[in-house]
Computed example of a mutant assay.
Amino acid sequence: MSTATRTVTHTSTGTLAPLLPGTVALVGGGPGEAGLMTVAGRAAVEQADVLLVDHLAPSEALGWAPSDAEIVDVGKLPREAFTPQESINALLVQHARAGRRVVRLKGGDGFVFGRGMEELEACAQAEVSVRVIPGVTSSVAVPALGGIPVTHRGLVQGFSVISGHVPPGHPDSTLDFEALARSGTTLVVLMGVATLSAITAALVANGLDPATPAAVVARGGHPDQQVVGATVADIAARAAHVEPPAITVIGHVAAFAATDTPVLEEVI
Results as ranks from 00 to 15, higher is better:
96 A>D: 00
182 R>S: 15
138 S>V: 07
177 F>Y: 15
122 A>F: 03
178 E>M: 11
129 S>A: 15
91 L>E: 13
127 E>M: 02
145 L>F: 15
146 G>C: 01
117 M>P: 01
131 R>N: 00
155 L>G: 00
189 V>G: 00
100 R>S: 13
103 V>D: 00
117 M>N: 14
181 A>H: 12
90 A>R: 06
118 E>C: 05
165 H>C: 06
148 I>N: 05
138 S>Q: 05
88 I>G: 03
131 R>I: 01
181 A>C: 14
145 L>W: 08
92 L>W: 08
131 R>Q: 11
163 S>A: 14
162 I>K: 01
99 G>L: 09
88 I>S: 02
187 L>R: 05
145 L>N: 10
132 V>S: 03
101 R>S: 09
131 R>E: 07
149 P>T: 13
157 Q>R: 11
148 I>M: 05
185 T>E: 15
162 I>R: 00
176 D>N: 14
185 T>D: 15
111 F>S: 09
122 A>S: 08
144 A>C: 03
149 P>G: 14
129 S>N: 05
89 N>F: 13
139 S>D: 11
154 G>D: 13
108 G>E: 08
151 T>V: 12
87 S>M: 15
184 G>C: 13
151 T>Q: 06
101 R>C: 11
187 L>Y: 09
153 R>H: 11
97 R>C: 12
101 R>Y: 08
194 A>Y: 14
149 P>L: 08
173 S>Y: 00
157 Q>G: 14
173 S>Q: 00
116 G>W: 01
88 I>K: 01
189 V>R: 00
98 A>L: 12
150 V>W: 10
135 G>R: 06
89 N>D: 15
135 G>M: 12
103 V>P: 00
174 T>P: 01
159 F>E: 04
111 F>Q: 09
86 E>L: 12
157 Q>A: 15
170 H>S: 14
138 S>N: 05
143 P>E: 02
102 V>E: 10
111 F>E: 10
161 V>K: 03
94 Q>V: 00
197 S>F: 00
191 M>R: 04
161 V>D: 07
121 E>S: 03
89 N>P: 11
142 V>L: 09
173 S>G: 01
171 P>H: 08
133 I>F: 13
107 G>P: 09
177 F>D: 07
106 K>H: 06
170 H>W: 12
85 Q>P: 04
120 L>R: 03
134 P>R: 10
102 V>N: 09
140 V>S: 10
143 P>I: 02
98 A>K: 07
141 A>R: 04
95 H>M: 11
174 T>R: 14
